[in-house]
Write a protein that binds this DNA or RNA. Structure first.
Lengths: 219, 219
DNA sequence: TAGATTGTTAATCGATTAACAATC
DNA sequence: TAGATTGTTAATCGATTAACAATC
């Protein structure tokens, strides 16, 4: 009766903040902090207390008036909501420099996430092993994916090849795609796509800089 | 009188979509498309037409009833709003695998963005050259940054070192930071920070998958 | 002219913030 | 008990969507 977490749709803005709370709490825990209040979390993360409280409420976390939230319990609530409790195995396609960087990223392990294997169309990449992850020929993807029941795919190929890779992933049983290619993928709506568009993201910074420094228009 | 674009604050949700339009239009242009309607853009990008129209309006773009928007003019409006018109030079700190991936990312050039130099504290990294970008000793950052009037910094160091690097950047004249470390940076509010938190982003996908496949709770 | 599409104003929806009650 | 903090309900704000007018 303790773990039957009600599964409900969390508003996207909140969902985006939850991992930030989790990372923050990891740091607090390491520093030996036992309890923490919304006010402190908000102050340290540049938010407002009531927003933090509402967000945490959605994870099922409960605090205590006067003392705040117990760090360990709060982390458990967040961890469960964010899916860190279940092991997540991903297959990555495109072992270019970005793909390799993701393969070598140690921190995913802390969240029970791992890249089980990477795949690449080029002979040159196949056979490499980065951070313990082997690079296999792309042709092996469908059979391995089915056999290992892998449900998460990561796309790190150039824009031109992304849709083709997505199609292959979907037909191989992938149900959630983390897409680093700057294209809008066309997939069945049973498949979840999350786009990571680095150039698009950087553009936001350029615009913010420009609007806050209008004098840079001279020259 | 043609280029005196009114500089105004664009709502963040819109700002996040603008680069997507731009990337889409790049593709249309390559395919020889001259004009495009909001309806088509919306259909291809999974949005609704009126939203696209409102977004484009904020860039100062004007369309023509019946034919839609001229692709080339629309791209110019977006390009100006997103800051692609001015050359943007960035300094990157942390030449690990992610840093190297960014250095090697050719696409930035299309947007007039470049990583002028990378910096690393470790002897091992210093002296490398990736994608034409040299890796220099971290100690050179302040003087070079001042001398070259670089205003954009990219942080690709581990979480523990990120605040220290941010402090150094700010005191060296950096005014906008693209931060890949999973920490909330404390900087003067004249400095703009844009966070790129890959683990946090992936967590969103995990949650979406979990809420859309509640049966995976078994086992 | 008729029809398609842009441009604009009004209505709706959802998230944030404010106000207050509950509790340790 | 008093005070700090959580929990909750109501008000505000901003973005999305709907409705309609303008125009090529």
């Amino acid at each position: 009766m303790d773990t039957d977490q009600k599964i409900m749709q969390i508003p996207l803005p909140t969902l985006k903040r939850l991992p930030i709370y989790y990372q923050y709490l990891t740091k607090m825990e390491r520093e030996g902090v036992r309890d923490v209040s919304c006010a402190k979390i908000a102050r340290d993360l540049g938010l407002v207390a009531v927003q933090v409280r509402k967000d945490l409420q959605l994870t099922g976390a409960v605090g205590r008036p006067k003392t705040g939230y117990q760090v360990s319990r709060l982390m458990r609530a967040l961890s469960s909501t964010l899916g860190y409790d279940n092991k997540t195995e991903m297959f990555l396609v495109g072992a270019g420099s970005l793909g390799k960087a993701l393969m070598g990223y140690k921190r995913f392990q802390e969240y029970n996430i791992g890249i089980a294997a990477a795949f690449d169309a080029s002979e040159a990449a196949v056979g490499l092993e980065i951070g313990g992850t082997p690079v296999l020929p792309l042709s092996k993807f469908p059979s391995l994916c089915h056999r290992m029941h892998v449900k998460f795919g990561v796309i790190c190929v150039p824009a031109e090849a992304a849709q083709e890779v997505a199609d292959m992933m979907v037909s191989s049983g992938i149900e959630a795609i983390w897409n680093f290619a700057p294209v809008t993928l066309d997939v069945p709506d049973t498949v979840i796509v999350h786009n990571e568009n680095l150039t698009a993201s950087l553009s936001i910074l350029l615009n913010k800089y420009k609007t806050s420094h209008p004098e840079s228009e001279r020259d």
